[in-house]
Simulated scan of single mutants.
Amino acid sequence: MATKIFDLMRKLGLGLVAAGGVANLTLYNVDAGHRAVIFDRFRGVQDVVVGEGTHFLIPWVQKPIIFDCRSRPRNFPVTTGSKDLQNVDVTLRLLFRPAMLQLPRIYTTIGEDYDERVLPSIAMESLKSIVARFDSEELITQRELVSGQLSADLTERAATFGIILDDVSLTHLTFGKEFLAAVEMKQVAQQEAERARFMVEKAEHEKKATIIATEGDSKAAELIAGALISVGDGLVELRKLEAAEDIAAQLSQSRNVTYLPLGQAKFLPPSQ
């Protein structure tokens, strides 16, 4: 009796193992943010894109190819030339993902490593083409314009391969030693020119101030001369009286001066 029960359990266990193996062969999972394309040995790559979850397939006949459809970054360092023939070191950063509905075409025409096959070539070509349209100063002062043109060009080219670009940006931009030296010399020359312009303006202002002061003195002399001519000797007498009044005020404060009525003045010895 015990032997029969043991044989039954062994057969049941083998059946469960076999069923589990069959289940593993007929089921596959598509994780979040991923999509699957089915390759059928008899019909080729299916046009249907399989979404997230657990799905069935025919063992040996069908095979799932899983694609990561989340945005992923890639950096491309490039050394290229500007419009004014300056060497420029640029790092281009792309945030990309595949177009879900075009996954069957991507797998059929390019392969699972579509990003390695497509992105480096179009990124290098577009970057060199766009940078060559600007000179060194424009690459610095018009960086947003450069990024905008590069984004438009790359987005259009990537779309032909079924790739979506969520972001295109220039994360690094440097120039050669010759350009940096030229920029420094230009800045020094500009500073010297500004200094010379300031000195010229200062001299002109001083010249104008001198002319205005001279004209003012001349005008004052003319006014005084005119007043003397119109008033005659009266103004001279007035100035004499004002001078005598000032002298009398000063003498009144002296201890050695004594005032007497008119006609009685005489010299007195200094007071002891």
Rank of each mutant, 00 (worst) to 15 (best):
I130Q: 09
I130E: 14
I130S: 02
I130N: 01
V131M: 04
V131D: 08
V131T: 09
A132L: 12
A132G: 12
A132K: 14
R133L: 12
R133H: 13
R133Y: 05
R133S: 11
F134E: 00
D135C: 06
S136W: 02
S136G: 06
S136A: 15
E137Y: 07
E137R: 11
L139D: 07
L139I: 00
I140Y: 01
T141G: 03
T141E: 10
T141D: 12
T141A: 13
Q142W: 00
R143M: 10
R143L: 03
R143E: 09
E144I: 09
E144M: 13
E144L: 14
E144K: 06
E144Y: 08
E144H: 02
L145G: 10
V146T: 14
V146W: 02
S147K: 13
S147V: 15
S147H: 08
S147F: 00
G148T: 11
Q149G: 03
Q149V: 00
Q149H: 11
Q149N: 06
L150K: 04
S151Q: 12
S151G: 06
S151D: 12
A152H: 08
A152G: 11
D153L: 08
L154I: 01
T155W: 01
T155G: 12
T155D: 11
E156H: 13
E156D: 13
E156W: 01
R157N: 04
R157H: 09
A158F: 07
A159R: 07
A159E: 12
A159I: 04
A159P: 07
T160W: 03
